[in-house]
């Protein structure tokens, strides 16, 4: 019984943790969108900044992956 409650809590926590991935999605979209609007204003400078964009995406995405990892840990490892 007690184990069931713990498990239920873990699953609820996993679901809540997954909302963090939405934030990562927003972040990545923000990065790419701003890059694109900047690139359309000044296309000649865009090519040199693609690497920077990917670095930004990587940082934004990493945090989403962290929350996914927390969800997985709650699901399978707790």
């Amino acid at each position: 019984m007690e184990g069931d409650i713990v498990q239920m809590g873990a699953y609820i926590g996993a679901g809540l943790a997954c909302t963090g991935m939405g934030g990562a999605a927003v972040g990545v979209g923000h990065v790419v969108g701003n890059f694109l609007s900047g690139a359309l204003r000044n296309p000649s400078a865009a090519a040199g900044q693609t690497a920077t964009m990917f670095i930004g995406i990587a940082f934004a995405e990493a945090l989403g992956i962290f929350s996914f990892l927390v969800a997985l840990l709650l699901m399978f490892a707790v």
Partner: peptide
């Protein structure tokens, strides 16, 4: 930490 978990997490997530 972020360097490793980013790669592993991405690959794991997609396959899962």
């Amino acid at each position: 930490v972020s360097h490793s978990i980013r790669l592993a997490g991405n690959m794991m997530a997609g396959h899962a």
